[in-house]
Amino acid sequence: MSRRRTIAIAVTVAGALAFVWLINATALWEFALRALFPTLRDVLMPRDTLATFVLQHLALVGTSSVLTIAVGVPLGIWVTRRSGAEFRSLVVAGTDLGQTFPPVAVLALAMPVLGFGFWPTIMALFIYGLFPVVSATIAGIEAVPRSVVEAGVGMGMSSSQVLMRAELPLASRVIVSGIRTSVAINIGTATVGAAIGTGGLGVPIIGGLAVQNMAYVLEGAIPAALLAVLADSILAQVESAVTVAEG
């Protein structure tokens, strides 16, 4: 492993530890927000601790991202196979539409079916985050040189061997970068879930807006932003770990 990689990983780990410390440092938040907003009676949302909001948020983002990857990557692979080729434009258009459709609207539409709480939010996030993963998977696989695939087939690899030994390793970097985009979007978008009682960092943000308490908004927004940065840098490490050595 190169020295730069080691340093990058160390910085990411340090950042994660600092984040964990920060969301538990209630006294620090109280002090800082009170200094910023001296006129407010409460500066931290009394309903739950910040750490609880962050954990709820992570559960939302984690569940939806796992679903997005579990569906998006195979879907992207499938439309680059001969069997799925004719669905390629349909899948791209469909996932693209999913991203154009506002998540709040998805929540509103999903609620009558799935009710309040966790699952409608997961569904909204899943639909919203699918496009970057699917399109990156397609782009990554299609960027694999034709000569490599032809040589693989010509040497007697089965199509699944070509996929596992050549196409996916060569596409993995692009696929992970799509996942990175999707996760970053999800962390921000997951805050809308609070509107239908899902919890997470949206609770202080939406609650704060309702009662015009800017301290609450910051209590939700700052950790959400930091979480997005942290998740992105963790996935950046994954991305460089799967980037195949090419000399």
């Binding site: 040189p145 034709r146 000569s147 490599v148 695939v149 032809e150 040589a151 693989g152 010509g154 030994r165 050549a166 390793p169 060569l170 195949v244 050595a245 090419e246």
Partner: peptide
């Protein structure tokens, strides 16, 4: 053997 060789870059 093909003209474009098709060595696996990874």
């Amino acid at each position: 053997v093909i003209q474009s060789i098709g060595l696996f870059p990874h």
